[in-house]
């Protein structure tokens, strides 16, 4: 287990390093930083002075190391547009996106796991077909379209839910559904497949042969084993949701990092974009690392592989 963990952590660190190099490159590719920092009404001398002051005349490797050092200390530089520290802006907006991601994931799990279990219990029954149909339809609906439709039905026509903003928990219901729906097909299929595999296994057959009641078998034995890969998938999906929340945050006017990322892209505020790419990627790396370790802990077979 320790050897596996060490190997896995090394991989995660290496990935984090590569991602940081890519995000560093993103900002450098976006144009002359010194000019951007100096602003419009600046003279050539101003620009040169800034270039020196910020070390932009140094070789790229030196610049990268300095930048990476600052990032590790939580300093992502200042936004070109807001002229505020990017770290402070992220600290304000990341909770919104995290909350959205978490509630979307909860929605997806609450919908997909029971459906997957029931579908696996009765393969080819109407409920199995319904679950599969939902999965196939879910994969084909454009997310922005689905979000707008939710808004028309629940916000405008029925008036059950507030349309935009972050004031109360109700504000998160529609965005969570719109975002979470896309994770349900994958989670459902995986739960179904896992359950079918486990139900066919010897120890479940033995348990059933011993005359244990079906719910006991289901929850005490089968689900616990079938759920292991689902945990890993959920972690991965959470990472995807953080990155995929741009469209949803824009439509529901949630001022999280997705919205900030898009706004920053349209106004070429690359220090912000860079920081968001880096932070989201790092969260993803940590999540998948934890999921893998948890999996290995729960399922000894993985450690050997």
């Amino acid at each position: 287990m320790l050897a596996y963990a060490a190997k896995r952590i090394c991989l995660a660190l290496l990935v984090a390093l590569t991602v940081s190099i890519i995000s560093f490159g993103l900002l450098r590719l976006s144009g002359d930083l010194a000019q951007a920092l100096a602003g419009q009404s600046s003279t050539a001398a101003d620009v040169e002075a800034l270039r020196k002051a910020y070390g932009l005349d140094q070789p790229l490797t030196v610049q990268y190391l300095e930048w990476a050092g600052k990032v590790l200390a939580g300093d992502f530089g200042d936004s070109f547009f807001f002229k505020e520290p990017v770290a402070a802006m992220l600290a304000q907006r990341l909770p919104v996106t995290m909350l959205l991601g978490a509630s979307a994931l909860t929605f997806a799990l609450v919908l997909a796991v029971p459906l997957g279990v029931v579908a696996a219990m009765r393969p080819n029954s109407w409920i199995d077909r319904l679950a599969l149909t939902l999965a196939v339809l879910g994969q084909a609906l454009p997310s922005f379209w689905f979000a707008l439709m939710l808004m028309i039905v629940f916000g405008l026509t029925l008036r059950w839910l507030p349309i935009s903003g972050t004031g109360t928990w109700q504000h998160f219901v529609m965005p969570s559904i719109a975002l979470g729906y896309y994770a349900t097909p994958a989670i459902m299929r995986l739960t179904r497949a896992g359950m079918m595999e486990v139900m066919a296994s010897d120890y479940i057959r033995t348990a059933r042969a011993k005359g244990l009641r079906m719910p006991t078998v289901l929850f005490k034995h089968a689900l616990r084993n079938a759920v292991i890969p689902v945990v890993a998938l959920a972690a991965v999906q959470f990472g995807f949701m953080l990155g995929g929340s741009i469209v949803i945050e824009t439509i529901f006017a949630l001022h999280g990092v997705g919205y900030l990322a898009w706004e920053s892209i349209t106004r070429a505020d690359f220090p912000v974009v860079q920081a968001i790419v880096l932070v989201l990627a790092s969260i993803y790396v940590v999540l998948t690392l934890l999921a893998d370790l948890l999996n290995a802990f729960l399922d000894p077979r993985i450690r050997i592989a």
């Binding site: 990935v15 991602v19 990155g243 892209i265 349209t266 790419v277 790396v285």
Partner: peptide, 23 residues
């Protein structure tokens, strides 16, 4: 190659695509 795949998976697709198209 596993390392390459993991790195790619960690980059948020929509965000990176938007940023590159904008550039």
């Amino acid at each position: 190659i596993t390392f390459l795949i993991t790195t790619r998976l960690s980059m948020p697709v929509v965000l990176v695509a938007l940023a590159v198209v904008a550039l």
